[in-house]
Design a protein around this nucleic acid. Structure first.
Length: 152
DNA sequence: GCCAACGTTGGC
DNA sequence: GCCAACGTTGGC
């Protein structure tokens, strides 16, 4: 069992959107970074814990708890020439981009970036590092437990 | 909308 | 395989 933080722009898919989806489950489309892809493809297991993070918005922070709901499979948007995530170099025979399904479990109060920075146990979180842009990052067990405690 | 950080691209 | 140019991310 591993833990992850996954960024989503709430204008695209918020925690409310995910909870409202069929089965509270959404495909994590649009990841176009190899490191983030590799986490999904190589390391995620069904049942892994997910911190659902709202980014590029007025109040960035952790907005809910989710879990990994599938193993990795090709992101269909890479094949769709009408999609902003279209990748002309990807083919169905050799897809480039993979995704997992994510099941939202509950909305939490917003744990803001500022609040996270103020918690010493979270000081080493990748999301808090300067210049961090990765949309999917591993979360240490002690960080996960600390955050769940904060949100309870 | 600014801009620092950093990933990707492509000429050499 | 180096590295400058360029594009993107994402907090502010």
């Amino acid at each position: 069992m591993q833990y992850w933080l996954m960024k989503s722009e709430p204008d695209e898919v918020s925690i409310d959107d995910a909870l409202a989806a069929a089965g509270s489950t959404v495909p994590w489309t649009g990841v176009r970074n190899y490191q983030a892809r590799n986490f999904m493809r190589d390391q995620m297991r069904v049942g892994d814990g997910v911190l659902f993070y709202h980014s590029s918005c007025a109040e960035p922070g952790i907005a809910g708890i989710a879990e990994v709901a599938s193993t990795a499979y090709p992101d269909p948007t890479q094949f769709d020439s009408g999609s902003p995530y279209f990748d002309p170099k990807a083919t169905r025979e050799t897809p480039r981009w993979m995704l997992v399904d994510v099941r939202a479990l509950r909305k939490t109060r917003l744990l803001t970036l500022d609040q996270m920075r103020a918690i010493p146990e979270l000081a080493d979180m990748q999301i808090l590092r300067r210049g961090n842009r990765l949309s999917i990052t591993p979360v240490a067990r002690h960080e996960w437990e600390c955050i769940l405690q904060q949100l309870s």
